[in-house]
């Protein structure tokens, strides 16, 4: 429970009747970051976000949000904003109506900053939000979530339904809000190219378990694509972790987490981008899930 961590979980497990949505999930997100929560559908992203907001309880394990357990009470909700996949707003009410409601319900509500933010985006304050475009509605929802000046914002697929321009504008608003300081963001998304711009931290879930958690630059610098004529990888796996192996009978192509110097000079080593790395981990969960984060990245996460 370090003050530098906005989110910390230890061994978090969520068991539904027929399905394990999260299994032994230990992750952390330092304060001031914009962290990308990625993984295939059903990997446990929404469950994790809902536990962090206090909307669901865990079957086992611990979660700390801004240093305390998530609870649906006033003190906690004043600090934590949450935008679900289905944005909850009153369609017939205008942005101004929502600002009015919020100011009655929240102790630190900043109506003026919210109006300024929306006006800068040319979003009409007096029009029913149901008549606004999808992008404008998302911006209103974000502005309202920021109006209570939360210290942590949890976003579940906030841009999935938006066109590319609206998406870019939404993420720009988010980046601008984080630039003001004091805010940490954890957002789930499938749109990796967007994430690469706006996120500096990543949490990757696959089969209910975290496979990666850490600073994106650090993680990328620890991985390489290795190519070379076909060969056995046993020797390589003694020192490094093979994340993905795509070999033909002539050629071997690997995504490897390097854990020391690469001694074999016959490998052709290339750097890897975030999208390819995420796909490599998502595509190879059968191989890695048993070992989970503990084997491949234990030092990344709790630190």
């Amino acid at each position: 429970m370090s003050p530098e961590l906005a989110v910390e979980t230890r061994g978090l497990t969520k068991q539904y009747r027929t399905k394990t949505a999260l299994l032994d999930c230990t992750i952390s997100v330092p304060t001031g970051r914009i962290s990308a929560l990625v993984g295939a559908n059903g990997a446990g992203k929404s469950t994790l976000l809902q536990i962090l907001t206090g909307l669901r309880s865990a079957s086992r394990g611990e979660a700390f949000v801004l240093g305390r357990g998530p609870e649906q009470n006033a003190a906690f909700l004043a600090d934590v904003g949450f935008l679900a996949q289905e944005i909850a707003m009153y369609k017939r009410f205008s942005a101004e109506d929502h600002i009015g409601i919020g100011s009655h319900l929240n102790p630190r509500w900043d109506s003026e900053a919210t109006r300024t933010r929306l006006q800068a985006l040319d979003i009409p304050l007096d029009q029913a939000v149901g008549t606004l475009s999808g992008g404008q509605r998302a911006q209103v929802a974000l502005a309202l979530a920021l109006a209570k000046r939360p210290r942590l914002l949890l976003l579940d697929e906030p841009v999935a339904a938006l066109d590319p321009l609206a998406r870019r504008q939404f993420l720009a608003s988010l980046a601008e809000a984080v630039a003001d300081g004091g805010l940490t963001v954890l957002l789930s998304s499938h749109l990796v190219t967007d994430l690469e711009r706006v996120c500096d931290h990543v949490v990757l879930l696959a089969s209910a378990q975290p496979q990666l958690c850490g600073d994106i630059d650090d993680i990328l610098s620890e991985h390489r694509i290795l190519t070379g004529p076909y060969r056995d990888t046993t020797a390589l796996e003694r020192d490094h972790v093979v994340v993905e192996n795509k070999s033909t009978d002539r050629q071997t192509t690997l995504v490897v987490r390097i854990r020391g110097p690469l001694v074999d000079p016959s490998w052709d080593a290339h750097t890897i981008g975030l999208e390819d790395l995420i796909l490599a981990y998502m595509g190879n969960t059968s191989n890695l899930s048993e070992r989970g984060l503990h084997a491949i990245g234990a030092k990344q996460c709790p630190g």
Binding site: I34, Q169, A175, V178, A179, D180, V198
Partner: peptide, 16 residues
């Protein structure tokens, strides 16, 4: 400013 670049490029302020 960091904030201007973050808003203009939708890029993480820490990157700037």
């Amino acid at each position: 400013t960091v904030k201007e670049v973050a808003a203009a490029l939708a890029v993480n302020p820490n990157t700037v």
